[in-house]
Design a protein around this nucleic acid. Structure first.
Length: 287
DNA sequence: CAGGCGTGGAC
DNA sequence: TGTCCAAGCCT
């Protein structure tokens, strides 16, 4: 193992946070659910929802047995509720096509709804201990800085997987610890805004530090539109209304959640198209 | 492939 | 207040 990987692995074993998905006996299904929830959502907000979900639906078959709307309701305010729909659909596929067992093959995982390059490898590695490069936003940032000497990663691409593969230890257990360690490093030390280089195990080897912390000069990232007043906010308001009701929500009731009719209609049409809402007798409900 | 997709905390 | 950011994915 190279010195860089060894430093990260040693640091990880000494500094890893005690998180639910790192407990002994945590199931592959638990890992899958946690990874869905962690897509773009902070750890602290995920933990309580995860506990609820796994208590209620301890297996893929348990989730597959209820209507998808129950998953959307239990998703509460984690955000990006299409993930709840996709997770439910994945549970159905696992139940029907994989005998209720979460696959450990990356390609089989990639074939499931809502699972992309990151989640497929995260499950294969963290649930099953297989040797694959895992690349998330934390790891992209750590590699950009420590290896490439840049303040921020460039646009994501397949080359990210190759860059991580080049660093990955050959040993299976060490590779899993390296993946987890790189993510942990990016999450609590090499953070986006104010990196804590004084606590970094690879500071002495960091290309960005050695270069004097040059400012980022690559292509600009797309600026996120403001949320206040956006279609996203309207979708969120409408969906909250549907989550809170066990009978159809009428069009008149929806008028009360957002005054702009055109925007409200657009948001509702989007929810219907996404399958997050369905037309029912007298109004709309969760699917 | 650029843009759409939630929500809330930190600064 | 506004801006940035958070274990991405889909079209």
């Amino acid at each position: 193992m190279h010195d860089f990987a060894r430093s990260v692995v040693d640091w990880y074993h000494a500094n890893r946070r005690d998180l639910p998905w790192r407990r002994d006996g945590f199931t592959p299904w638990g890992t899958l659910v946690s990874e869905f929830m962690l897509q773009q959502t902070p750890v602290t907000r995920v933990i309580p929802r995860l506990e609820e979900w796994l208590t209620r639906w301890p297996t893929p078959a348990a989730l597959a047995a209820v209507p998808p709307g129950e998953a959307v309701r239990a998703w509460q305010s984690l955000g990006y509720p299409r993930r709840a729909l996709w997770l439910h659909a994945a549970a159905v596929a696992i139940t029907e096509q994989h005998d209720g067992v979460v696959p450990e093959d990356v390609d089989a995982l990639l074939a499931l709804p809502g699972i992309g390059d990151y989640t497929a490898r995260a499950v294969a590695v963290f649930a099953y201990g297989n040797r694959h490069p895992v690349v998330d936003t934390n790891i992209r940032r750590v590699i950009a800085r420590a290896i490439d000497g840049q303040a921020e990663p460039g646009p994501p691409g397949k080359r990210d997987l190759a860059a991580m593969e080049a660093l990955l230890p050959e040993d299976r257990a060490a590779s899993a610890a390296f993946n987890a360690g790189m993510m942990e490093l990016g999450a609590i030390v090499c953070v986006a805004r104010t990196p804590r280089c004084d606590a970094c195990p690879v500071a002495a080897r960091c290309a960005w530090r050695q270069a004097g912390y040059p400012a980022y000069d690559g292509p600009k990232k797309a600026v996120q539109k403001r949320y206040e007043g956006s279609d996203r906010q309207v979708r969120g308001r409408i969906l909250a209304e549907l989550r809170g009701s066990h009978i159809p929500v009428t069009a008149a009731e929806l008028e009360a959640v957002w005054p702009d009719a055109a925007q409200r209609d657009r948001a509702l049409a989007g929810l219907l198209a996404d399958g997050l809402a369905v037309a029912a007798e007298g109004g709309y409900t969760l699917p």
